[in-house]
Design a protein around this nucleic acid. Structure first.
Length: 351
DNA sequence: ACGGATGATTCGAC
DNA sequence: GTCGAATCATCCGT
Protein backbone atom coordinates (compact mmCIF):
# COMPACT_ATOMS: atom_id res chain seq x y z
CA UNK A 1 0.00 0.00 0.00
CA UNK A 2 2.62 2.52 1.03
CA UNK A 3 4.95 1.66 -1.78
CA UNK A 4 2.10 1.91 -4.23
CA UNK A 5 1.36 5.44 -3.12
CA UNK A 6 4.99 6.34 -3.29
CA UNK A 7 5.12 5.16 -6.87
CA UNK A 8 2.06 7.21 -7.74
CA UNK A 9 3.54 10.25 -6.09
CA UNK A 10 6.72 9.79 -8.01
CA UNK A 11 4.85 9.49 -11.25
CA UNK A 12 2.73 12.50 -10.38
CA UNK A 13 5.73 14.67 -9.61
CA UNK A 14 7.20 13.63 -12.88
CA UNK A 15 4.13 14.77 -14.78
CA UNK A 16 3.78 18.02 -12.96
CA UNK A 17 7.38 19.07 -13.05
CA UNK A 18 7.99 18.00 -16.59
CA UNK A 19 5.51 20.53 -17.81
CA UNK A 20 6.58 23.45 -15.66
CA UNK A 21 10.09 23.13 -14.39
CA UNK A 22 13.48 22.84 -15.95
CA UNK A 23 14.72 21.05 -12.91
CA UNK A 24 12.83 17.92 -11.97
CA UNK A 25 12.64 14.74 -13.96
CA UNK A 26 15.60 15.48 -16.17
CA UNK A 27 18.31 14.86 -13.61
CA UNK A 28 19.71 18.35 -13.95
CA UNK A 29 22.74 19.02 -11.76
CA UNK A 30 22.15 21.38 -8.84
CA UNK A 31 23.45 24.97 -9.19
CA UNK A 32 27.03 25.46 -8.21
CA UNK A 33 27.82 27.27 -4.98
CA UNK A 34 31.37 28.36 -5.94
CA UNK A 35 30.68 31.10 -8.43
CA UNK A 36 33.51 33.33 -9.51
CA UNK A 37 36.26 30.90 -8.59
CA UNK A 38 36.15 28.74 -11.70
CA UNK A 39 35.15 30.76 -14.77
CA UNK A 40 35.60 27.98 -17.34
CA UNK A 41 33.69 25.44 -15.26
CA UNK A 42 30.87 27.87 -14.86
CA UNK A 43 30.66 28.55 -18.58
CA UNK A 44 30.64 24.85 -19.14
CA UNK A 45 27.78 24.46 -16.66
CA UNK A 46 25.78 27.20 -18.30
CA UNK A 47 26.36 25.64 -21.65
CA UNK A 48 25.12 22.34 -20.33
CA UNK A 49 22.04 23.93 -18.85
CA UNK A 50 21.28 25.81 -22.06
CA UNK A 51 21.68 22.68 -24.05
CA UNK A 52 19.41 20.79 -21.76
CA UNK A 53 16.87 23.59 -21.88
CA UNK A 54 16.95 23.54 -25.67
CA UNK A 55 16.29 19.82 -25.79
CA UNK A 56 14.09 19.47 -22.74
CA UNK A 57 10.71 19.97 -24.42
CA UNK A 58 11.24 17.36 -27.11
CA UNK A 59 12.40 14.78 -24.68
CA UNK A 60 10.00 15.53 -21.88
CA UNK A 61 6.82 15.60 -23.93
CA UNK A 62 6.80 11.93 -24.80
CA UNK A 63 8.06 11.01 -21.39
CA UNK A 64 5.47 13.18 -19.69
CA UNK A 65 2.69 11.80 -21.83
CA UNK A 66 3.78 8.30 -21.00
CA UNK A 67 3.91 9.06 -17.29
CA UNK A 68 0.59 10.85 -17.42
CA UNK A 69 -1.00 7.92 -19.16
CA UNK A 70 0.53 5.58 -16.66
CA UNK A 71 -0.85 7.62 -13.84
CA UNK A 72 -4.31 7.84 -15.35
CA UNK A 73 -4.44 4.12 -15.83
CA UNK A 74 -3.14 3.31 -12.44
CA UNK A 75 -5.57 1.28 -10.37
CA UNK A 76 -5.04 3.47 -7.31
CA UNK A 77 -5.70 6.68 -9.16
CA UNK A 78 -9.47 6.94 -8.40
CA UNK A 79 -8.80 6.40 -4.71
CA UNK A 80 -6.09 9.05 -4.59
CA UNK A 81 -8.22 11.40 -6.62
CA UNK A 82 -11.13 11.12 -4.25
CA UNK A 83 -8.84 11.62 -1.27
CA UNK A 84 -7.45 14.77 -2.83
CA UNK A 85 -10.96 16.00 -3.61
CA UNK A 86 -11.96 15.40 -0.04
CA UNK A 87 -9.00 17.32 1.29
CA UNK A 88 -9.74 20.17 -1.08
CA UNK A 89 -13.37 20.19 -0.02
CA UNK A 90 -12.36 20.43 3.63
CA UNK A 91 -9.65 23.03 3.23
CA UNK A 92 -11.50 26.00 1.93
CA UNK A 93 -13.57 25.78 -1.17
CA UNK A 94 -16.54 24.65 0.85
CA UNK A 95 -16.76 28.11 2.44
CA UNK A 96 -17.71 29.70 -0.83
CA UNK A 97 -20.47 27.20 -1.43
CA UNK A 98 -22.14 28.08 1.86
CA UNK A 99 -24.99 30.12 0.41
CA UNK A 100 -26.59 27.25 -1.49
CA UNK A 101 -30.14 27.15 -2.85
CA UNK A 102 -31.18 30.79 -2.59
CA UNK A 103 -34.89 31.32 -1.84
CA UNK A 104 -36.99 32.78 -4.68
CA UNK A 105 -36.20 36.47 -4.82
CA UNK A 106 -39.37 38.51 -4.08
CA UNK A 107 -38.15 41.26 -6.35
CA UNK A 108 -37.71 38.83 -9.21
CA UNK A 109 -41.12 37.34 -8.52
CA UNK A 110 -42.69 40.77 -8.65
CA UNK A 111 -41.05 41.46 -11.99
CA UNK A 112 -42.13 38.07 -13.33
CA UNK A 113 -45.71 38.62 -12.23
CA UNK A 114 -45.84 42.04 -13.79
CA UNK A 115 -44.39 40.85 -17.08
CA UNK A 116 -46.91 38.04 -17.09
CA UNK A 117 -49.78 40.40 -16.31
CA UNK A 118 -48.73 42.78 -19.08
CA UNK A 119 -48.49 39.88 -21.50
CA UNK A 120 -44.80 40.40 -22.17
CA UNK A 121 -43.80 37.00 -20.91
CA UNK A 122 -46.13 34.02 -20.90
CA UNK A 123 -48.09 32.53 -23.81
CA UNK A 124 -47.73 34.03 -27.27
CA UNK A 125 -50.19 36.65 -28.53
CA UNK A 126 -53.11 35.68 -26.30
CA UNK A 127 -51.84 37.27 -23.13
CA UNK A 128 -50.69 40.42 -24.85
CA UNK A 129 -53.89 41.20 -26.64
CA UNK A 130 -55.94 40.27 -23.59
CA UNK A 131 -53.99 42.70 -21.44
CA UNK A 132 -54.24 45.36 -24.11
CA UNK A 133 -57.97 44.79 -24.43
CA UNK A 134 -58.43 45.03 -20.68
CA UNK A 135 -56.40 48.20 -20.59
CA UNK A 136 -58.38 49.52 -23.52
CA UNK A 137 -61.62 48.90 -21.69
CA UNK A 138 -60.25 50.68 -18.65
CA UNK A 139 -59.17 53.62 -20.76
CA UNK A 140 -62.64 54.34 -22.02
CA UNK A 141 -63.41 51.89 -24.79
CA UNK A 142 -64.41 54.65 -27.16
CA UNK A 143 -64.14 54.15 -30.88
CA UNK A 144 -61.90 57.12 -31.54
CA UNK A 145 -58.96 55.91 -29.50
CA UNK A 146 -58.69 52.49 -31.13
CA UNK A 147 -55.82 53.91 -33.14
CA UNK A 148 -53.99 54.58 -29.94
CA UNK A 149 -54.66 51.04 -28.79
CA UNK A 150 -53.22 49.51 -31.91
CA UNK A 151 -50.26 51.81 -31.49
CA UNK A 152 -49.92 50.63 -27.93
CA UNK A 153 -50.19 47.01 -28.97
CA UNK A 154 -47.56 47.49 -31.64
CA UNK A 155 -45.18 49.06 -29.14
CA UNK A 156 -45.91 46.33 -26.62
CA UNK A 157 -45.21 43.67 -29.22
CA UNK A 158 -41.95 45.42 -29.98
CA UNK A 159 -40.95 45.36 -26.32
CA UNK A 160 -42.04 41.75 -26.15
CA UNK A 161 -39.92 40.77 -29.11
CA UNK A 162 -36.86 42.53 -27.76
CA UNK A 163 -37.39 40.92 -24.42
CA UNK A 164 -37.67 37.44 -25.86
CA UNK A 165 -34.71 37.71 -28.20
CA UNK A 166 -32.57 39.10 -25.41
CA UNK A 167 -33.74 36.40 -23.04
CA UNK A 168 -32.98 33.75 -25.61
CA UNK A 169 -29.56 35.26 -26.21
CA UNK A 170 -28.79 35.18 -22.51
CA UNK A 171 -29.97 31.62 -22.18
CA UNK A 172 -27.90 30.53 -25.13
CA UNK A 173 -24.84 32.33 -23.84
CA UNK A 174 -25.39 30.84 -20.41
CA UNK A 175 -25.66 27.33 -21.82
CA UNK A 176 -22.63 27.78 -24.02
CA UNK A 177 -20.57 29.15 -21.19
CA UNK A 178 -21.74 26.43 -18.82
CA UNK A 179 -20.87 23.60 -21.17
CA UNK A 180 -17.56 25.25 -21.94
CA UNK A 181 -16.67 25.54 -18.27
CA UNK A 182 -17.91 22.03 -17.59
CA UNK A 183 -15.80 20.59 -20.38
CA UNK A 184 -12.83 22.56 -19.14
CA UNK A 185 -13.26 21.33 -15.60
CA UNK A 186 -13.84 17.75 -16.73
CA UNK A 187 -10.72 17.97 -18.79
CA UNK A 188 -8.77 19.42 -15.87
CA UNK A 189 -10.20 16.88 -13.46
CA UNK A 190 -7.87 14.40 -15.11
CA UNK A 191 -4.85 16.24 -13.78
CA UNK A 192 -6.14 18.01 -10.67
CA UNK A 193 -8.70 17.10 -8.08
CA UNK A 194 -12.09 18.42 -9.17
CA UNK A 195 -15.08 16.53 -7.87
CA UNK A 196 -18.39 16.35 -9.78
CA UNK A 197 -19.90 18.19 -6.86
CA UNK A 198 -17.53 21.06 -7.42
CA UNK A 199 -18.44 21.21 -11.09
CA UNK A 200 -22.07 21.28 -10.07
CA UNK A 201 -21.39 24.16 -7.73
CA UNK A 202 -19.57 26.05 -10.45
CA UNK A 203 -22.57 25.58 -12.75
CA UNK A 204 -24.74 26.99 -9.98
CA UNK A 205 -22.51 30.04 -9.68
CA UNK A 206 -22.65 30.62 -13.42
CA UNK A 207 -26.43 30.31 -13.46
CA UNK A 208 -26.76 32.78 -10.62
CA UNK A 209 -24.59 35.27 -12.44
CA UNK A 210 -26.62 34.93 -15.61
CA UNK A 211 -29.91 35.14 -13.79
CA UNK A 212 -28.85 38.43 -12.28
CA UNK A 213 -28.29 39.67 -15.81
CA UNK A 214 -31.73 38.36 -16.73
CA UNK A 215 -33.16 40.24 -13.82
CA UNK A 216 -31.72 43.45 -15.17
CA UNK A 217 -33.36 42.71 -18.48
CA UNK A 218 -36.67 42.07 -16.75
CA UNK A 219 -36.30 45.26 -14.76
CA UNK A 220 -35.71 47.41 -17.80
CA UNK A 221 -38.52 45.69 -19.69
CA UNK A 222 -40.86 46.45 -16.82
CA UNK A 223 -39.80 50.06 -16.87
CA UNK A 224 -40.39 50.27 -20.60
CA UNK A 225 -43.87 48.79 -20.23
CA UNK A 226 -44.69 51.16 -17.41
CA UNK A 227 -43.63 54.15 -19.47
CA UNK A 228 -45.65 52.86 -22.40
CA UNK A 229 -48.67 52.38 -20.19
CA UNK A 230 -48.48 55.80 -18.67
CA UNK A 231 -48.06 57.34 -22.11
CA UNK A 232 -50.86 55.50 -23.87
CA UNK A 233 -53.27 54.02 -21.46
CA UNK A 234 -53.44 56.14 -18.36
CA UNK A 235 -57.08 57.06 -18.56
CA UNK A 236 -56.51 60.15 -16.50
CA UNK A 237 -54.25 61.51 -19.16
CA UNK A 238 -56.55 60.78 -22.06
CA UNK A 239 -59.81 61.47 -20.34
CA UNK A 240 -62.70 62.24 -22.62
CA UNK A 241 -66.00 63.54 -21.39
CA UNK A 242 -68.89 61.29 -22.26
CA UNK A 243 -71.07 62.32 -25.16
CA UNK A 244 -73.98 64.62 -24.43
CA UNK A 245 -76.36 61.84 -25.27
CA UNK A 246 -74.69 59.47 -22.81
CA UNK A 247 -74.80 62.07 -20.04
CA UNK A 248 -78.44 62.64 -20.84
CA UNK A 249 -79.28 58.97 -20.47
CA UNK A 250 -77.33 58.65 -17.23
CA UNK A 251 -78.90 61.77 -15.76
CA UNK A 252 -82.35 60.60 -16.75
CA UNK A 253 -81.82 57.37 -14.87
CA UNK A 254 -80.28 59.14 -11.91
CA UNK A 255 -83.04 61.67 -11.41
CA UNK A 256 -85.82 59.21 -12.10
CA UNK A 257 -84.34 56.91 -9.44
CA UNK A 258 -83.38 59.66 -7.07
CA UNK A 259 -84.86 57.82 -4.12
CA UNK A 260 -82.47 54.95 -4.79
CA UNK A 261 -79.88 55.89 -7.38
CA UNK A 262 -78.10 52.54 -7.23
CA UNK A 263 -78.59 50.75 -10.54
CA UNK A 264 -78.42 46.98 -10.41
CA UNK A 265 -75.80 45.10 -12.36
CA UNK A 266 -78.33 44.51 -15.13
CA UNK A 267 -79.35 48.16 -15.19
CA UNK A 268 -75.71 49.18 -15.34
CA UNK A 269 -75.14 46.86 -18.26
CA UNK A 270 -78.09 48.28 -20.10
CA UNK A 271 -77.02 51.85 -19.43
CA UNK A 272 -73.49 51.00 -20.53
CA UNK A 273 -74.85 49.58 -23.75
CA UNK A 274 -77.08 52.60 -24.37
CA UNK A 275 -74.26 55.06 -23.68
CA UNK A 276 -71.60 52.95 -25.41
CA UNK A 277 -69.39 53.06 -22.34
CA UNK A 278 -68.24 50.31 -20.01
CA UNK A 279 -70.09 49.04 -16.96
CA UNK A 280 -67.30 50.27 -14.71
CA UNK A 281 -67.64 53.71 -16.26
CA UNK A 282 -71.34 53.63 -15.43
CA UNK A 283 -70.40 52.70 -11.87
CA UNK A 284 -67.88 55.53 -11.74
CA UNK A 285 -70.41 57.95 -13.08
CA UNK A 286 -73.03 57.02 -10.51
CA UNK A 287 -70.45 57.06 -7.75
CA UNK A 288 -69.35 60.55 -8.71
CA UNK A 289 -72.89 61.73 -9.31
CA UNK A 290 -74.20 60.55 -5.95
CA UNK A 291 -71.39 62.11 -3.98
CA UNK A 292 -71.48 65.37 -5.89
CA UNK A 293 -75.22 65.62 -5.79
CA UNK A 294 -75.22 65.00 -2.09
CA UNK A 295 -72.50 67.54 -1.51
CA UNK A 296 -74.42 70.34 -3.09
CA UNK A 297 -78.06 69.56 -3.70
CA UNK A 298 -78.85 73.20 -4.35
CA UNK A 299 -76.50 73.36 -7.28
CA UNK A 300 -78.17 70.36 -8.88
CA UNK A 301 -81.73 71.52 -8.20
CA UNK A 302 -82.19 73.03 -11.62
CA UNK A 303 -80.84 69.93 -13.29
CA UNK A 304 -83.09 67.76 -11.12
CA UNK A 305 -86.12 69.76 -12.10
CA UNK A 306 -85.16 69.63 -15.74
CA UNK A 307 -84.87 65.84 -15.84
CA UNK A 308 -87.89 65.34 -13.66
CA UNK A 309 -89.87 67.44 -16.07
CA UNK A 310 -88.43 65.48 -18.95
CA UNK A 311 -89.60 62.19 -17.52
CA UNK A 312 -92.90 63.79 -16.64
CA UNK A 313 -93.43 64.64 -20.31
CA UNK A 314 -93.02 61.01 -21.26
CA UNK A 315 -95.57 60.02 -18.65
CA UNK A 316 -99.10 59.67 -19.80
CA UNK A 317 -101.44 62.60 -19.60
CA UNK A 318 -103.81 60.47 -17.61
CA UNK A 319 -101.31 60.19 -14.80
CA UNK A 320 -100.62 63.89 -14.96
CA UNK A 321 -104.30 64.53 -14.77
CA UNK A 322 -104.64 62.20 -11.83
CA UNK A 323 -101.90 64.11 -10.03
CA UNK A 324 -103.60 67.34 -10.86
CA UNK A 325 -106.87 66.01 -9.55
CA UNK A 326 -105.35 64.82 -6.32
CA UNK A 327 -103.72 68.20 -5.88
CA UNK A 328 -107.06 69.84 -6.42
CA UNK A 329 -108.52 67.60 -3.78
CA UNK A 330 -105.78 68.30 -1.27
CA UNK A 331 -104.34 71.77 -1.77
CA UNK A 332 -101.91 71.40 1.13
CA UNK A 333 -99.83 68.78 -0.73
CA UNK A 334 -96.19 69.96 -0.81
CA UNK A 335 -93.80 69.77 -3.74
CA UNK A 336 -96.09 71.11 -6.38
CA UNK A 337 -95.11 69.99 -9.84
CA UNK A 338 -95.36 66.26 -9.50
CA UNK A 339 -91.83 65.48 -8.36
CA UNK A 340 -90.49 65.51 -4.88
CA UNK A 341 -87.61 67.48 -3.46
CA UNK A 342 -84.95 65.01 -2.46
CA UNK A 343 -83.57 64.98 1.04
CA UNK A 344 -81.19 62.82 3.03
CA UNK A 345 -82.24 60.32 5.63
CA UNK A 346 -80.34 59.43 8.75
CA UNK A 347 -78.95 56.30 7.06
CA UNK A 348 -77.17 58.46 4.53
CA UNK A 349 -79.20 57.28 1.58
CA UNK A 350 -80.62 59.83 -0.77
CA UNK A 351 -84.36 60.07 -0.43
C1' DA B 1 -54.83 81.41 -18.51
C1' DC B 2 -58.09 80.38 -15.11
C1' DG B 3 -61.48 77.84 -12.59
C1' DG B 4 -65.29 74.86 -12.43
C1' DA B 5 -66.77 70.39 -14.38
C1' DT B 6 -65.83 65.75 -14.87
C1' DG B 7 -64.06 60.98 -15.38
C1' DA B 8 -60.83 57.97 -12.98
C1' DT B 9 -58.25 56.30 -9.09
C1' DT B 10 -57.23 55.30 -4.36
C1' DC B 11 -58.26 54.20 0.33
C1' DG B 12 -60.72 52.57 4.19
C1' DA B 13 -65.15 50.56 5.81
C1' DC B 14 -68.50 47.13 5.37
C1' DG C 1 -67.16 42.64 -4.25
C1' DT C 2 -69.56 47.76 -3.55
C1' DC C 3 -69.80 51.98 -1.26
C1' DG C 4 -68.51 56.95 0.12
C1' DA C 5 -64.94 60.15 0.35
C1' DA C 6 -60.91 62.44 -1.07
C1' DT C 7 -58.02 63.32 -4.62
C1' DC C 8 -55.88 63.51 -9.19
C1' DA C 9 -55.59 64.83 -14.01
C1' DT C 10 -57.75 66.43 -17.70
C1' DC C 11 -61.43 68.90 -20.24
C1' DC C 12 -63.68 72.96 -21.57
C1' DG C 13 -66.22 77.33 -21.31
C1' DT C 14 -65.08 81.93 -20.12
Amino acid sequence: MMEEQARIMQALSGVTLAGHSVQGGMGLPPPHGHEGTDGDGRKQDIGDILHQIMTITDQSLDEAQAKKHGLNCHRMKPALFSVLCEIKEKTGLSIRGAQEQDPPDPQLMRLDNMLLAEGVSGPEKGGGSAAAAAAAAAAGGGAENSIEHSDYRAKLTQIRQIYHTELEKYEQACNEFTTHVMNLLREQSRTRPISPKEIERMVGIIHRKFSSIQMQLKQSTCEAVMILRSRFLDARRKRRNFSKQATEILNEYFYSHLSNPYPSEEAKEELAKKCSITVSQVSNWFGNKRIRYKKNIGKFQEEANLYAAKTAVTATHAVAAAIHNSQANSPTTPNSGGYHTPCYQSDGRIQ
